[in-house]
Amino acid sequence: MALVLWLIAAVLVISGIVSLVRGQMLWGIVLIVVGLLVGPGGVSIFG
């Protein structure tokens, strides 16, 4: 389960960075924050 959370978090953070580069600041920030919350190192929303 931890591996799945890491993969989801990595995809979200990378998508957020790509959004920031494309100029979509708000969406990029939201994706990065959600990615950090989902990741095992963050405050996991799945317990």
Rank of each mutant, 00 (worst) to 15 (best):
V11L: 13
G47C: 06
L37I: 09
W27S: 08
G41E: 03
A10F: 01
I14F: 14
L12Q: 09
I17A: 05
W6F: 14
I14P: 03
P40C: 00
A9P: 08
M25A: 14
V38L: 03
S44A: 08
V34Q: 06
L26M: 04
I8A: 14
A2F: 10
I29K: 04
L31Y: 03
V43I: 09
L26Q: 03
F46E: 08
L20T: 02
P40F: 04
L37H: 02
V4E: 13
V4T: 12
V18E: 01
L20A: 01
L3I: 15
A10I: 08
G23T: 14
L37D: 06
R22Y: 09
W27R: 08
L31S: 15
G42F: 05
V30C: 04
I14W: 11
I45F: 12
I45N: 04
I14T: 07
L36C: 12
M1W: 08
L31M: 09
S15R: 15
Q24W: 05
A10S: 10
F46Q: 09
V34A: 11
I14H: 05
I32M: 07
L31W: 01
A9H: 01
V34M: 11
V33Q: 12
L5D: 05
I8K: 09
V11E: 02
V33H: 11
V34L: 15
G35K: 03
L37W: 09
M1S: 07
M1P: 06
S15E: 05
V38H: 03
A2Q: 14
V18Q: 10
Q24N: 10
V33G: 14
L7E: 14
I32S: 05
G39S: 13
S44M: 10
L3K: 09
G35Y: 00
G16S: 02
L5T: 05
V30P: 00
I45Y: 10
L36N: 00
I29G: 02
L26I: 10
V18K: 15
R22L: 15
Q24K: 14
S19A: 15
G16N: 06
A9K: 00
L5V: 01
S19P: 00
A9G: 09
V18L: 11
G28K: 02
G47N: 11
V4S: 14
G41C: 05
G41N: 13
V30E: 07
W6C: 07
I8Y: 06
G41Q: 12
V13L: 01
M1L: 13
I29F: 12
G23V: 15
G39C: 03
A2T: 04
L5R: 15
A10N: 03
A9E: 00
L31V: 02
G39R: 05
V11W: 14
L12N: 03
W6D: 11
V13C: 03
V11P: 05
S44I: 08
A10P: 01
L20E: 01
V43A: 13
V43G: 12
S15T: 11
G41R: 14
V18N: 10
L37S: 07
L12R: 07
V34N: 04
V33D: 10
V4W: 07
G35D: 01
G39Y: 04
M1Q: 12
S15Y: 06
V18Y: 11
